[in-house]
Design a protein around this nucleic acid. Structure first.
Length: 906
RNA sequence: GGGGAAUUAGCUCAGCUGGCUAGAGCGUACGAUUCACAUUCGUAAGGUCACAGGUUCAAGCCCUGUAUUCCCCACCA
């Protein structure tokens, strides 16, 4: 006996993972070969759908730790991967690691500061090299954690977002876009973090509502409203709404800009909202997004008055060099002293913050690289509307289309050294007037290049991380123009719903642009994992759950089962340790189920019985007698193609046929659930089949009837079916069982078990009988401390054949034929002549309960009769439903009759 | 302002194409039991499916409206 009395995951998980990895079990069976160009291609494509299954991991931060969201991601993706691998597909789960441009940079810069350095002491290339070393030193935790979670990914193919092939592909795309005129350099306002000294894409900005003040300033005859008085030095106009009666006469005039000696025009623009503040707004094109647009419409000058590090520039000497905050105070004081400040009121407005450090972002005028997204978005929308990608949840497709329709040009420049260098070089030889100002070149390892005698220097900026990650499905599958791989498009892209726009949208645009095909056939988006009260997890709230702690405490499988339960696509849902505990309990249950079966098999072998010995019955005294194979029981041969390792089985009693049926149903249910990405339901189904059916009924019955071959094959089926969700447990059991061979991980998905449906259905009768005996015994016992009563039966072969089983399951002290007149309490639910031999007084005490029961059934019967009395129902409802209702009426009526008979007996 | 979602047992959630006498886990109550498993077994209580209309033979599910909650996008001088 190799099985300990409880499952201890820590004893098995690491070894099992190492054994899988050493055996190369994670690698795709059929390597990605180029599609044969000589053939018409159609057959290859057709074939590929059946044989290849590819999925790529959203790359976790290379030098970070996994959080609960990663835990969910792995649970989902690995379950899919393992399921499809068991189904016999050539499955490729590609792991990844992200250089996490901004995140890592923030961490590194902090470390630099701690050592008393700043980024400005180093060149861009020096910084890049230093962060590279920093990352290499820190790297590895995340990969170990993925292993601990059981991710069956192909480690040989791990893709790091700064790998050479990634950079190559990114440059190729960039070059193509540059040549196609999709890339342009523009001076635009960008959200700029003065602390981190970098710009962000719109999508990275976090807007928060904050209390602020709306000041009213007198610009001569007109009073403007502003929340940022310090930017007045950059004002180049005052705008009023063209419809606004109050200001009609002022349009076209100029006003004096306080604290300066400048005059600025009053212009008419829709942007000014007559309802808001005074209806007149100062226009600062260099420091406000709306004003920038207004400035463009009216050809206004852009005066930059705030530097990138947040200090005042191009302002009167008095204010020069102040921080924006200091300047605001000073300006307000001066305005007040000089009588320009006419009022102030408190307001709430939303302010852009750096999502990393919380610093208020400064709109900053910068020259940046942009992608003209119009065509890309349009193409993506076309393919989406053609339903080339199936979304889970479905509604996200419309959300995505809506986003793409309103997408603005994409700023891809970042002023962070840690990233892929933008392969663009700026002309510095002034006299070379015919040459373009910017040229594309891949040699980003050089800071300066020369072409036809002209010198160019490399742009210092790096790519927005989403620009490179939008290539993820392409680079992970090694797709190329020359060798399109059958693993592209991916079968599914699984990721967080929160990065639908940032990532999924861009992968689709980029995939189509580069390959002409959508990058994946389906998208599964998971929601946020919330704490047990439905609150977002955050460090400040202290409610963060570390997945690795749960894995250490309860095992990887328990965590995976726990996090999948009660979770559906796209929803933010609560999670608590409880669900992991219940996962752990299932693991332990299955462990003990296997332990019991192994012990039966060990006994069987010790007795030297032939391997495919037929079942035996246990006698009252505990000894076994051989049961003859009843010809009428419809013995079923196990067909060749079903054969795993256990020999052919034969079903010999109701419970055995029944469990075959239940396992078949479970597995086909699983197949549907996996196809529809209903993970929680899949787990639920397995839970019920293993626990409520296999253990509670079938195994209990096998304590009497021992069918060794059937025990083997049914256990194999359940283990394989659970493997995608609980890989370690099922492998540990598989390795401990005496008759199994190889890895369960690479076993074959079970095919159908043969059984006799009629016999299987009879077992439902037995279950009903047993349940009613249990219920009634408990109800009768009441104050009587669960006293058990003997069971009597009259001329009933089902009961007679299963005396021992019923006795075991109900713990009634005795089951005997009823000799003579009926006595005791007749059990009515099951249509069998059975009685609990209860003293008369106890039966009388039960009478009220019985009356209640009759009334309840009567109400059900009334409802059914009402339905049938409606001619429209009989006419219009499907025939099988009407028939069903008729049958139910018959049944209920019979039940009432039986209950009444029971009552009369008392 | 635009878009999306949720509302079902004390809690967390299922309920798919309308057929429901609405389910599960956890929790609660009562009971059992010591060689597969106390990480166990049995039984039970617990619901006006947010509200109001409508469609239908039939509505938790479809339609209209209302309320509450959450998320995303845009705006907020």
């Amino acid at each position: 006996m190799k099985f300990a009395s409880s499952y201890e995951p820590n004893q098995y998980e690491a070894d099992i993972y190492a054994a899988w990895e050493a055996a190369g079990a994670f690698n795709p069976v059929v390597p990605a070969v180029p599609i044969d160009n000589n053939s018409d291609g159609i057959d290859d494509r057709f074939e590929k759908n059946g044989r290849y299954y590819s999925i790529v991991m959203p790359p976790p931060n290379a030098n970070g730790n996994l959080h609960i969201g990663h835990g969910l991601t792995v649970a989902l993706e690995d379950s899919l991967t393992r399921y499809h691998r068991l189904k016999g597909e050539s499955t490729w789960y590609v792991p990844g690691a992200d250089h996490a441009g901004f995140e890592t940079w923030v961490v590194y810069e902090k470390a630099l500061e701690k050592d008393g350095h700043t980024r400005f002491e180093f060149s861009r290339d020096e910084l890049y090299a230093r962060v590279w070393d920093f990352v290499q030193m820190q790297r590895g935790n995340m990969e170990l954690q993925l292993r601990a979670l059981g991710a069956s990914c192909s480690w040989d193919d791990l893709t790091f977002t700064l790998d050479e092939n990634v950079v190559d592909r990114v440059y190729t795309t960039f070059e193509k876009m540059w040549n196609d005129g999709l890339i342009y350099r523009g001076e635009k306002l960008v959200n700029f973090c003065p602390k981190h000294q970098t710009a962000f894409a719109d999508i990275e900005v976090e807007h928060k509502d904050e209390k602020g003040t709306l000041w009213e300033l007198a610009y001569d005859d007109i009073i403007v409203s502003t929340t940022r008085p310090e930017t007045l030095f950059g004002d180049t106009a005052v705008a009023v709404n063209p419809e606004d009666e109050r200001y009609q006469h002022l349009i076209g005039k100029t006003v004096h800009l306080p604290l300066t000696n400048r005059e600025i025009p009053i212009i008419a623009d829709e942007h000014a909202d007559p309802e808001y503040g005074t209806g007149a707004v100062k226009i600062t094109p260099a420091h406000d997004f709306d004003d920038f647009e207004v400035g463009n419409r009216h050809n206004l000058e852009r005066i930059q008055v705030i530097s990138e590090d947040g200090h005042m520039i191009n302002v009167p000497e008095k204010y020069e060099g102040l921080t924006t905050e200091e300047c605001r105070k000073q300006v307000l004081k001066d305005l007040k002293d000089q009588g320009y400040l006419k009022g102030e009121k408190k307001i709430v407005h939303s302010v852009a913050h750096c999502y990393k450090c919380g610093t208020v972002l400064e709109p900053m005028l910068k020259e940046q690289w942009f992608i003209d997204v119009e065509k890309l978005a349009k193409t993506a929308i076309e393919h989406l509307e053609r339903d080339e990608i199936k979304f889970h949840p479905e509604n996200k497709k419309r959300v995505l289309i809506n986003y793409l329709k309103n997408l603005k040009d994409w700023n891809i420049s970042r002023q962070i050294p840690w990233g892929i260098a933008i392969p663009m070089f700026r002309k510095v030889t002034a006299e070379a007037t015919d040459e373009p100002d910017w040229i594309f070149d891949r040699r980003t390892n050089l800071t300066e290049i020369e072409k036809s005698g002209v010198t160019y220097v490399r742009d210092e900026d790096t790519f927005d991380t989403w620009f490179s990650s939008s290539h993820w499905p392409i680079v992970c599958t090694d797709w190329s123009e020359e060798n399109p791989t059958p693993y592209y498009p991916l079968n599914v892209m699984e990721t967080g719903a929160d990065i639908l726009f940032a990532w999924v949208a861009r992968m689709i645009m980029m995939g189509l642009y580069v390959t002409g095909e959508v990058p994946f056939k389906e998208v599964y988006l998971h929601g946020l994992v919330l704490d047990e009260h439905g609150q977002k997890m955050s460090k400040s709230k202290g409610n963060v759950i570390n997945p690795m702690e749960l894995v250490a405490k309860y095992g990887s499988d328990a965590f995976r089962l726990g996090i999948l339960r009660g979770r559906s696509a796209g929803m933010n849902q609560a999670f608590s340790e409880n669900s992991v505990v219940s996962g752990r309990n299932l693991c332990n249950k299955l462990w003990n189920i296997s332990r019991l079966i192994q012990s039966i098999i060990d006994e069987d072998e010790n007795e030297g019985a032939p391997e495919n010995a037929l079942s035996r019955s246990i006698n009252d005294n505990g000894s076994f007698t051989e049961r003859p194979s009843p010809a009428t029981a419809g013995a079923r041969e196990r067909s060749e193609k079903d054969a795993f390792l256990a020999p052919t089985y034969t079903t010999l009693n109701q419970g055995e046929d029944w469990i075959c049926r239940e396992i078949n149903d479970c597995i086909s249910q699983l197949e549907t659930d996996m196809k529809e990405y209903r993970f929680a339901e899949a787990v639920e189904t397995l839970y019920q089949t293993i626990w409520d059916k296999y253990a509670d009924w079938f195994l209990e019955s096998q304590k009497i009837y021992r069918n060794v071959p059937l025990l083997k094959i049914t256990l194999e089926h359940l283990l394989i079916a659970l493997h995608p969700f609980a890989p370690f447990l099922t492998e540990a059991i598989w390795q401990n069982l005496s008759w199994t061979d190889g890895f369960i991980m690479t076993a074959k998905w079970p095919s159908e078990l043969n059984f006799d449906p009629m016999t299987a259905e009879q077992f439902e009768n037995i279950r009903t009988i047993v349940s009613e005996i249990r219920t009634t015994s408990q109800a009768l016992s009441g104050t009587n401390k669960s006293k058990k009563y003997p069971l009597l039966y009259d001329n009933d072969s089902l009961v007679e054949d299963n005396i021992l089983l019923i006795k075991t399951l109900t713990r009634v002290p005795d089951i005997n034929p009823l000799n003579g007149a009926p006595r005791g309490l007749r059990l009515a639910l099951a249509n069998h002549e059975i009685y609990l031999d209860v003293p008369e007084q106890t039966v009388k005490d039960y009478k009220d309960a019985l009356t209640e029961k009759i009334l309840a059934v009567g109400r059900e019967l009334d409802a059914l009769n009402l339905r049938m009395s409606n001619p429209n129902y009989v006419e219009r409802a499907p025939e099988h439903l009407v028939k069903e209702t008729r049958d139910q009426i018959k049944e209920k009526q019979a039940l009432i009759d039986r209950l009444k008979a029971q009552q009369e007996l008392i």
